[in-house]
Nucleic acid binder design. Structure first.
Length: 323
DNA sequence: AACGCGACCAACCGCCTTATA
DNA sequence: ATATAAGGCGGTTGGTCGCGT
């Protein structure tokens, strides 16, 4: 037979999450780690299906998520990646570690699609800035995708072959960055990571108890989220009535104001979670590969790319006309 | 003040793939 | 090998908010 049944669909709550539910979920994940979503509703008493719990975690509660407006840099990157990968939001999100696929998808549907459309009508479909028009994108899209897939496969293979011996690849900056979470310092095992976060969450709960949200409200969660999304810093997600508890502050303070898309903004703790909920970067094309590809694709005049940030900075510079 | 409308976004839905008994 | 549930993903929906009239 198959697996045991997940969660019976009877009495499953739907709709916006309340702060209480959020805290329960976060506390549980702090203790047990993400994964095994099937057991989450039963173990926490949450009247939510496992799918809903997972979604809430990955799209909202997971540490390291940056909320609020997208930067130009991010938008440009999304546009390029969308042209490259199509509507594969999860894949696109893997290159924007602080953004969720849902976020990117929403941003695309509400902003970027219009921007591109406007650009297309304004520029009469002309390619002024090196950014591919939708037509030109679809024209060579499959060819490009194939090319990318081949590169991905090659890269994955070369990494797999070189895993056992340190070499130039493993010495590279991006390798260190994307693998740093695999080598936690001896003083910081995974369990201790969770433990420290448990402290945070308990403080969070204490503070939250002091200033409980107004009971009304199917909107309390919504209020939280809306406030947080208007906060371009991202991070803490409490309404103004309930001032951000200090625990929350430290727990969700992964996003420095200028840490837009950089990999190294991922803290070790963050990485532990991201390791679970984001695609493993080892299996992704290194950013630089995509970067180079985009450079080839978008603009022949772009020569160098930013070593520090690992972004598609230079090629994207060429599409500043968009914004 | 009331209404309409569009923008925004969290959450749901349904399908597909993967894992497991 | 097969059936079935979990997990993952993209598309869509529905509630809320802000702005203009």
């Amino acid at each position: 037979m198959g697996r045991p049944p997940c969660c019976d669909k009877i009495g499953v709550k739907k709709g916006p999450w309340t702060p209480e539910e959020d805290i329960i979920l976060v506390s549980y994940i702090q203790e047990h780690g993400p994964g095994n979503w099937r057991s989450v509703p039963t173990n926490t008493g949450l009247l939510r299906c496992s799918k809903s719990c997972r979604l809430r975690w990955t799209n909202y509660l997971r540490p390291g998520i940056k909320r609020g407006n997208f930067t130009e840099q991010e938008e440009k990157m999304i546009i390029h990646l969308q042209a490259l990968l199509g509507n594969r939001w999860a894949a696109i999100a893997s290159y924007l570690p602080q953004r969720t696929d849902n976020d990117i998808k929403n941003n695309w549907n509400t902003h970027l699609k219009k921007k591109l459309k406007k650009l297309q009508t304004d520029g009469d479909g002309e390619n002024r800035d090196g950014l591919s028009s939708p037509q030109s994108v679809s024209k060579g899209q499959w060819e490009r995708r194939l090319q990318t897939d081949i590169k991905m496969a090659k890269q994955a293979l070369s990494e797999a072959l070189s895993l056992d011996k340190p070499n130039s690849l493993t010495d590279s900056v991006e390798f260190k960055l994307s693998h740093s979470y695999l080598r936690p310092s001896s003083s910081q095992s995974q369990s201790s990571i969770y433990a420290s976060s448990v402290e945070n969450i308990s403080r969070l709960i204490q503070n939250w108890m002091k200033t409980p949200p107004k009971p009304k409200t199917a909107n309390s969660a919504k209020t939280m989220t809306q406030n947080s999304s208007s906060n371009t810093d991202g991070g803490a997600s409490f309404s103004n009535e309930a001032t951000p508890p200090e625990g929350f502050d430290s727990f969700f303070s992964f996003n420095s104001p200028n840490s837009d898309v950089s990999h190294d903004s991922v803290s070790p703790e963050n990485s532990v979670f991201q390791d679970e909920s984001k695609p493993d970067l080892r299996n992704q094309v290194p950013l630089r590969l995509i970067e180079k590809w985009l450079l080839d694709d978008g603009s022949a005049q772009a020569q160098a790319y930013d070593e520090e940030e690992g972004l598609i900075s230079t090629s994207l510079e060429n599409s500043t006309g968009l914004f």
